[in-house]
């Protein structure tokens, strides 16, 4: 599975946590109350936070406040309000361990799919 793969949202729900930990990009899955439900090893290592400390926390205020603006958080809200599919890739800067890091973010959500996902790819 790679970052740009088509239909990745449908596949992610079928990927077990152990397999998600093998991926070479970050995976953050969260529910419709924006509570983090999945957080893979790549993301934990990049952010310097352990998966156990992140699961069950609110994503945009407690785990990744840097994405709490119209460019990211708002797009998930808008997609949910309109009941539409969201699959967008944007350039962004994350503050991994307080260092500015250019990344590509892929925003994924669809009506009827259990979790929403944020995928983080760090171009080498």
């Amino acid at each position: 599975m790679d970052f740009t793969q088509d239909d990745i949202l449908a596949l992610l729900d079928g990927v077990g946590d152990a397999d998600a930990d093998e991926l070479d990009f970050g995976v953050i899955g969260f529910d419709d109350s924006t509570i983090v439900r999945r957080y893979n090893a790549w993301e934990a290592k990049a952010a310097g936070l352990s998966t156990a400390n992140v699961l069950g926390r609110e994503l945009f205020n407690v785990v990744a406040p840097c994405m709490n603006n119209f460019m990211v958080a708002q797009r998930f809200e808008d997609a949910a309000a309109q009941g539409s599919v969201l699959d967008a890739t944007i350039d962004y800067v994350l503050t991994l361990k307080m260092r500015p890091v250019k990344v590509k973010l892929r925003l994924l959500a669809a009506p009827g799919v259990k979790y929403r996902y944020l995928l983080v790819h760090r171009p080498s």
């Binding site: 119209f70 944007i90 962004y92 800067v93 307080m98 500015p100």
Partner: peptide, 20 residues
């Protein structure tokens, strides 16, 4: 160095998708 709230506030002002 910057913390997440900095990125939250500054990213919407960035013209090139970066924060250098």
């Amino acid at each position: 160095m910057l913390n997440p709230i900095s990125a939250q506030l500054l990213m919407p002002l960035s013209r090139d998708g970066g924060l250098e």
